[in-house]
């Protein structure tokens, strides 16, 4: 099976993680790489041991966009815990990501 068509999730927790995240990207662009690096850093800081990240490259598997109704990439989808949440862009704004993931209340 082509591994690119069937992404292997990056698991950071042995049991079912509390935070199941999907990062939709379009190829290995600077922005998608930055998005991944930022996401990884934030998760390690705030969710160590409780998260999994699945990277989906829509240039390889565009049909996977339908499930989460993706409009633009990069997009981060928080699948668990519910409700589903989405954050668009390279995730360089940590505060925005934390709010988006519902990890910390928005200020002001």
């Amino acid at each position: 099976m082509n591994a690119l068509a069937s992404p292997t999730p990056l698991r950071q927790a042995d049991a079912t993680p509390a935070f199941e995240l999907r990062l939709y990207v379009a190829g290995q662009t600077a922005r998608s790489l930055a998005a991944f690096a930022n996401l990884h850093r934030i998760c390690e800081t705030y969710l160590a041991g409780q998260y999994s990240i699945e990277v989906i490259d829509l240039t390889k598997t565009p049909q996977l966009a339908a499930g989460d109704q993706i409009l633009a990439v990069p997009t981060l989808v928080r699948r668990l815990p519910e409700p589903i949440r989405k954050i668009i862009a390279d995730l360089s704004n940590e505060a925005r990501v934390l709010v988006g993931l519902d990890l910390q209340p928005a200020r002001g």
Partner: peptide, 9 residues
Amino acid sequence: RHGEVDALV
């Protein structure tokens, strides 16, 4: 608008 998107679906 802010040019933060690589592609549209």
